[in-house]
Structure formats: structure tokens, C-alpha cells
Design a protein around this nucleic acid. Structure first.
Length: 107
DNA sequence: TAGTTGACGGCCG
DNA sequence: CCGGCCGCCAACT
């Protein structure tokens, strides 16, 4: 069963409601990996192997930018998906990022 | 086994 | 203000 170390990471990502996003650093810090934001990125890379599904499109970098959109089935899927959730994305950048951002550290 | 990469973040120059 | 470097943990080659 969950022999994967990112298991908690996926759980946090799945906990993100539609229309909301979070950052790698927020997740990392939430798990105690404050400086290991890269690990969260690696976890996302493997996310597609995780079950049942991980809304990785709701995870962006600290700039509110769709840095990982190129890793999805289609590079446009991430933006289209976020827009479908009510977000506004221009130039691969989330508008009102701080408004939709869930900062677990501040929350 | 060792070296490098990776969907990042923070700090220094 | 902008650019570059180091640090984090795990996986890939």
C-alpha cells in the first residue's frame, strides 16, 4: 500500500477545492520539507501514477505561474482546467493569484 | 556506485 | 530592479 513517501503530498493536493490553487513551497512546508519544494515537484511528476487522481493542475509555483503545464497530457489542459474552475489565467499566469491561493502556512 | 536532473524556493551579488 | 547560485529530497541514467 502507500509505500510512497509523497502519499501525504497527494492527499494535500486532492484536498484543494475547485477554484483554488496552492504552491509547491506551501505543500512542502506543510509536510515539513520547507526547503524541499523540488520534492513536491517530483511527487507531481509521479502523480499520474498515483491513485485515484491528483489534481496537479491546481499546484503552481510561488509566482502563480503554470510552470508544470507542459507535463500534462496537453500543455493547454492545465490552463483550460483552471479556467473551467472559475480562475482567470493570462499568459500562463494566474490572475488574483493571492486570492485563490491556499497558503497552508498562513491558513 | 556515483553523478546529474527536476513541475522550486530563498538568498546573495 | 534583475540575474545568478546554493540548498532540499528523491529518482533517473
Amino acid at each position: 500500500m502507500s509505500s510512497n513517501v509523497y502519499e501525504p503530498i497527494y492527499e494535500v493536493v486532492r484536498a484543494i477545492p475547485a477554484g483554488r490553487v496552492t504552491t509547491y513551497g506551501a505543500i512542502a512546508k506543510l509536510l515539513g520539507l520547507s526547503g524541499g519544494a523540488r520534492l513536491v515537484g517530483w511527487a507531481m511528476n509521479k502523480a499520474h501514477t498515483a491513485m485515484p487522481n491528483v489534481p496537479a493542475h491546481r499546484v503552481v509555483n510561488r509566482l502563480g505561474r503554470l510552470s508544470g503545464k507542459l507535463h500534462f497530457a496537453t500543455p493547454t489542459m492545465m490552463q483550460e482546467r483552471l479556467e473551467s474552475e472559475g480562475l482567470t489565467i493570462i499568459n500562463d499566469e494566474i490572475q488574483c493569484f493571492a486570492t485563490v491561493l491556499i497558503d497552508f502556512d498562513t491558513l
